[in-house]
Design a protein around this nucleic acid. Sequence first.
DNA 1: TTGAAAGCGCTAACAT
DNA 2: ATGTTAGCGCTTTCAA
Lengths: 326, 326
Amino acid sequence: MTLADVARAAGVAHMTASRALNSPETVNPEMVERVRQAVIETGYVPNLLAGALASARSLLVAVIVPSIASTIYLEFVQALRGTLASKGYQVILGESDYEHQLEPALLDTLIARRPDAIVMVGAVRSAEGRKRLLASAIPVIETWDMPADPLDMLVGFSQTAVGRAAAGYLLGEGRRRLAIISANDDRAAMRAQGFLEAVKESHPSMRVQSVLIPAPSTLGEGRRALADLLSRATPPGAVFCTSDTVALGVLTEAKARGIEVPKQLAVMGYGDMNFAPDTDPPLTTIRADGKVIGREAARLIFERASATVKERVVDVGFSIVRRVSA
Amino acid sequence: MTLADVARAAGVAHMTASRALNSPETVNPEMVERVRQAVIETGYVPNLLAGALASARSLLVAVIVPSIASTIYLEFVQALRGTLASKGYQVILGESDYEHQLEPALLDTLIARRPDAIVMVGAVRSAEGRKRLLASAIPVIETWDMPADPLDMLVGFSQTAVGRAAAGYLLGEGRRRLAIISANDDRAAMRAQGFLEAVKESHPSMRVQSVLIPAPSTLGEGRRALADLLSRATPPGAVFCTSDTVALGVLTEAKARGIEVPKQLAVMGYGDMNFAPDTDPPLTTIRADGKVIGREAARLIFERASATVKERVVDVGFSIVRRVSA
DNA sequence: TTGAAAGCGCTAACAT
DNA sequence: ATGTTAGCGCTTTCAA
């Protein structure tokens, strides 16, 4: 079933059928009705492949996440997909596997679909990747970060500032013997770096213990990381975890060992995931609103599509959610 | 940059350039080399929109999950996407929001992309949805379930059998005063139903307490559900949770109240999510291997594409993972 | 407001 | 092994 079949059934030219479906306001209402009827009769479903080729608008948005299995970006992807869907856009999924090597190849396979925009979690790191994106002339939105040299549009917040805020908070609460458990991924590393910087600046002689765990992080890694920290000469008085999932593991291990949180050990997470208010004790964490990032990214895509480009950088900020664990 | 530009740069017909890229074995190696060189020089990236239209193969697979935010299907989607990517397929994401009403509309927007296959979590429920899928002639794979009347291909296991197995296990361990905490979604409801059936068959007079929580389920809902159960006349001796996330909440609440697991209360989950071995105590659960379902679904798509259709129904089964909590 | 012609960039099918 | 022609199903553009 093609548009030609619909047009035939409605007794109009196929171009009129196309208009009746895509811009009904430009067509005689009576014709529109006839075409709509013909669509129902024939069971016609438009071929967006053909439409995209002819119009050079695919209504497709490529979204690249580090790992589908990492829960941090779920609400972001959900909000992004949902908002885009409200205007007929669909999402095609890419996965960078936390590897910059693959970036150019991955980008090429996505560019081959001619998406109307590419949304990346994080910044585009590889020079080759930047080059290809620029050459493709496809709008790009980097998210969840605030690099100084964005490729195009940007929705996020400073990851190092998150780490700094965490350090400031824990130090401000009078915590000493700080430790950090960081996943081995770009943005977690930036949070960890910000944390270390802030400590060094305010307390130059203070040492911070640290444990690096694989990404994406899990509860189990958090447990083992705390066990590791506790086995060292000076046990920590506060731990900043670069994800709530890890923090949950730390809480679990602490409880299993009878360590009182927050009295003996302060635990701070990042993400404010949906379980954070319900851990025991409730988790103090840093909230980054993935839903907002997703919606803002979609908004930028809509704006760019209608050529009314306003701001290209949106800093959504973050906030410390003070609960009990720290 | 189009294939014509590449062909011109290489000094060949555009069809030769196409062949050199897509089936190099049919082209003189020397020509292939010239074309490859031209691709690099020109920075050509193929237009899959055009390729798909011309060849009637989109290399696109639509995947419909109930909710992007539900963690249970992450490994499934990841394995599916990864396996498909190995053969050049890309994944386009749909979300059913646990609502059958929207199904036909959602399907139409996806069918409009002319995917080479549609993979659904769960069975296609709406008659209208089934009709449209059939009319589209697109291969369909229903997953995570084992309906008696599959639409086309099927990779999953019986959800009611999961519930039955859970009941059998808990009863076999001598547990009485059984309770069930079920999320309000199709498959969770089937697990709950299987559980209740099995109890009724072996212990006709036994009553099972139950709590229904919204989908997708969270740790917090699990905590509150246990609190609810404990407030009733007869506190439970064992709880079957229709997801590990809920079970984690139950463990959390039990620990907070000083209830000993598994001594006073047995807790059983479903999913064997990555945190299950590391909860305190380690979670006894039912393992359904999303990775395997994802890979098998991809395999069926590959097979269907090469027309060597073998089995259309794959029962991947499930297993009880006995740890400590039950 | 409607229609006709042309073409988006590629591949299938046929011819050489 | 390579080239030529036609056409996938739609939209853009121009004409009526």
